[in-house]
Structure formats: C-alpha cells, structure tokens
Simulated scan of single mutants.
Amino acid sequence: MDLRLGDNQYGKAEVRLVRVDRAEAGHTVTDLNVSTALAGDLDATHLTGDNSGVLPTDTQKNTVYAFARDGVGEPEEFGLRLARHFVDTTPTITRARVHLERYRWERITVDGQPAHHSFARAAGVRTATVTYDGTTAWVVSGLTDLTVMNTTGSEFHGFHRDRFTTLPEATDRILATAVTARWRHATDTANWAESFGLARGALLEAFADTHSRSLQQTLHAMGERVLRGQPDLAQIRLSLPNKHHFLVDLSPFDLDNPGEVFFAADRPYGLIEGEVIRDGAPDPGLAWW
C-alpha cells in the first residue's frame, strides 16, 4: 500500500501581545492574540526528522514581539508584515497564515473627559487573518463575540413539521445572537480601520432594522448590507448562534406573563451559518478561511 505525506503546516498559537503607545495626550493600548502557521517544503522534518528547513515556533513568537517594537497599527497591516516576512526570508516556507484577535480597550471617562491612562475592556473582538503565498496576499477581517438582541420584531412560523416537532409557532419573540463575521477584501490594501468601522456598523444596523421571519433571513440581510456598503469586499461569512429566550409560565403562581419574563437558555442552541458572495469576485477557494 502506497502512502504519502498530506497537507501540513506548523506555527505558534496564541502569542499574547500588549503594546502601550504612550502619547502625551493619552495612552493607547493594543491587545492582540497572534497565531502563525507556516507551510512549504517540510517533507524532511516529517519523514526523516531533518529540521534544517524548519523555522522554530519560538522564533515565530519572538518575531511577533520584535515587529511590535516598531508599532503595530491595524491588525491587518501587522498580519501582512509578519506573513510576508516569514515567506520572503525562509527558503522552505511558501505560505504563511497569520490570525489575529484584537481585544478592545477604551479609556475610562472621568468628569466627561477620557482618562489619561485608565481603560475598560469593551465588548466584541476584532479579528483579521492574512494568508500570503509569495505572490498574493488574501486579507480577511472580522469580529466575534458581538452580542445583540431585538426584544420584538422577530417571528418564526410556517416551518416543516414531522412527528418529532414540538416547537410552537412564534409571531413575536426575542431574537438574540452573538455575531461572528468574517469578510474578505478583494485587495491587500485598504483603510483597514475605516473598513472595519463601516462593516461593524452595517451589521448592527441591518440586525436592528430587519423585521425577522427567521434568523437565516437576518443573516442574509446583515451580509448583504456589509457588501453593498463596501464595493471592495468580495464575500462575507457569518455564524449566528440563536440565543434562545423562552417565555416563563407563571400560571402556577396565578400570574400572567405578557411577554415580560423570560428564561435565557445557553444550550442547546440553533446555529445558523452562511455567506453572501459578490458576483464576479475572485475566489481563492476554501484555503483562505
């Protein structure tokens, strides 16, 4: 029986990096979780244990910290710098992927003014993934853990039923989810901060002003709003867990419940996923995700 080595990669996962920019007017915190993954001519290390072509994962970690000394900037920009460095300076490496999570810190307000060096952690995590193969760079921006809720304006009825279906139809329900979204840029140059702000705003606006008949419909409306607002985005993928809120039966206590008291269930939950794609956009396949 013939066997061969399949696809492989290696890297350093979850390098925690915090940079403080100490401007006189007020400090700024950049808080990142950086993971690197390298692929290329690595047969020897797998088949014979010859490590001459392997850039140690510890070196990858050190590179993240060393590059931060010159400044981080936007996560997409930092990821591009790292990915290009690994491919362009290591002969055996032909593809580098850098995934970044940026945790948001906002300066605390005191007497109506932002504090000089005091911060509070803000909701939601910004993400970026950069893949570079020596010629082309694919940039994917995104966010996760952005929890949103509509207390009305959501329905779910008319669904298929079989003998195991017990779910009652709903014409007015709470709709809540924790948004994970990733959108791919058509180029590797952009105003990353502005693009992220526009995309985040579009996601929130579409969630708020879509009268939802299903979470699938809301997902599509959110993705469509992001792409229509930014022509340089090629596609967006969303993952929306349905954070169920069930009306509590208060009748055993001789109390009514006119849509005011709910039980928030954490599991199991529906998980709705999908993507919206711009016609004609170049498609690098699944590898860039």
Rank of each mutant, 00 (worst) to 15 (best):
A23E: 14
I93D: 02
Y10K: 08
A181E: 03
D256K: 13
E77D: 15
G26L: 05
L204C: 09
A25S: 14
A181L: 01
E74Y: 00
L17R: 02
N62C: 08
G270R: 09
P268V: 06
L255P: 00
G201Q: 11
P252R: 10
A39D: 11
D21H: 11
G134P: 09
E169M: 11
A37S: 00
E273P: 05
H27P: 04
R161M: 07
A96R: 02
L255Y: 12
R126K: 04
E77T: 12
P252L: 09
V140Y: 01
H116Q: 13
E74V: 01
L17H: 04
L55V: 01
N8L: 11
F156L: 14
V261C: 11
A122R: 04
S52R: 15
T127W: 02
R16S: 14
G112N: 05
L82I: 15
H99K: 06
P282K: 07
R225K: 14
P114F: 10
N62M: 03
A25T: 13
A287M: 09
S212K: 12
R225V: 08
H160I: 13
R278Y: 09
K243C: 12
A44D: 08
D249S: 01
E260M: 10
A206S: 12
D50W: 02
V179M: 11
L100C: 08
D133T: 03
R102F: 00
R161W: 05
T187Q: 11
A122M: 01
A44S: 05
L255V: 11
V20G: 00
E275K: 09
G49A: 04
E106R: 14
W138P: 03
H99G: 13
D50N: 07
L3I: 12
A281S: 15
W192T: 05
T45C: 15
